[in-house]
Design a protein around this nucleic acid. Structure first.
Ligand SMILES: NC(=O)c1ccc[n+]([C@@H]2O[C@H](COP(=O)([O-])OP(=O)(O)OC[C@H]3O[C@@H](n4cnc5c(N)ncnc54)[C@H](O)[C@@H]3O)[C@@H](O)[C@H]2O)c1
Ligand SMILES: NC(=O)c1ccc[n+]([C@@H]2O[C@H](COP(=O)([O-])OP(=O)(O)OC[C@H]3O[C@@H](n4cnc5c(N)ncnc54)[C@H](O)[C@@H]3O)[C@@H](O)[C@H]2O)c1
Lengths: 209, 209
DNA sequence: GCTAATATGTGATTTTTTTCACGGAACAGC
DNA sequence: GCTGTTCCGTGAAAAAAATCACATATTAGC
């Protein structure tokens, strides 16, 4: 029974995929919705509903075959395709991301970094090619980069995003604490806002007592 | 008309608070739900509903008085209290966070860093005090630290979180790509999972075409 | 002082998302 | 081969969240 996937469902399914990967590495062949739910932090029936959106793939009575589930998710969510990504803004956060080793094993290939400071570009020592910001459009198109991790100072976030959009980027993970406007049919955005998460925690602490 | 606040509402209200701050710095005295909505990326009526959960604070016809709205949010969400925070795991990500300058202006005081590598502790040059991981409980209690930013390797995330809980921490921003289990009545957790955000983007790109 | 445009607050409505409940299937232990 | 347990799939119900619609208030322009 295939259905349109909602964002919460997609988010959870991505986590299920990750979990399948880990189970496979551990040599585990089968898994139940209960186990998956525990690993992901949601109830079992939510997992079942989510997985069901992609059609039947589990075995009633026994659980899910890890390999089969993973293959199913891979196809449905498009993980068979390696996505090329870049990091824009190679300051403190951008540098940390450049060295982050999990991208490769997760199906992402980070192939470029950009910074507006030529001095910074020249003094950085890194395995990955880094370019001045004014080459962004050219490099993104030449290298067929689809995703960008945006870690520039907040005041230039929108202008930088505009360049990314003009370069034909398809998705942006925005670490800057501002909302960026993009043509939403062409480009997807996910925001990561550390300060706001801390504020939410602080509010929950206040409200919860 | 006061109501219980849902997580989505709290999240947006925190962003509204941030926005009020910026408007105030720009010397802007009044703001409408339409403007706020645009800045935050949600429709105007959502903003109005959210703000209304805290009781009436706007003026029908003209919009909201920025100062009054901010004061209202501050009280309701508990932002009048400065929250003390620490960073656990001073690797690439943790170091970036240590140098992040926005905490102070946002009502957070980051007063300690922890790492299990004594060598790392000793060679780090930083304004902020850093401690070996085995002093975590003592320092957190002595310094009355309420929040932790967790940036340790994923395999030790749960064990580290356990120590944080035992130390009496109230909230955790978890950057590790694993779910951590904590007693949910005592401790709040917000997860930031970069890889998963990228996967979601990738899925949306696949599904959207 | 009149009009058009712009505001908020909020009950009602719609949509989305989660949760429940249970039929039917496999399995482990005995 | 029987029994109690575990498990998936799924329609139905419930809960939560978003959206609409409009009464009512303010402001700006003229
Ligand atoms: N440091 C953190 O831990 C942290 C945490 C959360 C969010 N953020 C956000 O991430 C962003 C970057 O933070 P940071 O601490 O790394 O800042 P940073 O100042 O260390 O680095 C910013 C980098 O962007 C470069 N840059 C400036 N304009 C640019 C442009 N137009 N194009 C390309 N590169 C440009 C600068 O040269 C610099 O190297 C900020 O928006 C910040 O709010 C940072
Ligand atoms: N680097 C990134 O850009 C990035 C991005 C997103 C998420 N993350 C996640 O953040 C976490 C840290 O990533 P990183 O790249 O900074 O790793 P890292 O290896 O550079 O740093 C980890 C640090 O944690 C310390 N550590 C190890 N065990 C500890 C313990 N028990 N108590 C305290 N400190 C301990 C290590 O000494 C090290 O300094 C990882 O879970 C990673 O998946 C990193």
């Amino acid at each position: 029974m295939k259905k349109k996937l909602s964002i919460p469902t997609i988010t959870r399914l991505c986590m299920v995929f990750q979990q399948c990967d880990e189970l496979q590495i551990m040599g585990i062949l089968r898994v139940s919705s209960t186990q998956l739910g525990k690993a992901i932090g949601v109830p079992a029936h939510t997992i079942r509903k989510d997985i069901n959106c992609l059609g039947e793939v589990g075995d009633t009575g026994s659980g899910y075959d890890v390999a089969r589930l993973k293959a199913h998710l891979r196809r449905a969510l498009g993980f068979d395709q390696i996505r090329r990504a870049c990091i824009v803004g190679l300051g403190r956060l951008g540098s940390a991301l450049m060295d982050y080793e999990k991208f490769g094993a997760s199906g992402f290939s980070v192939v470029a970094g950009f910074d507006s400071s030529v001095n910074r570009i020249e003094t950085m020592q890194t395995r990955m090619p880094v370019y001045p910001a004014y080459d962004m459009k050219e490099v993104i198109q030449r290298e067929a980069i689809e995703l960008a991790l945006l870690a520039v100072p907040a005041p230039v976030a929108q202008a930088t995003a505009d360049v990314l959009v003009a370069s034909g980027i398809r998705g942006i993970v925005n670490f800057c604490p501002v909302v960026i406007n993009v043509p939403e049919t062409q480009v997807q955005v996910r925001n990561i806002n550390v300060i706001n998460e801390m504020r939410v925690l602080s509010s929950l602490m206040t409200l919860g007592e």
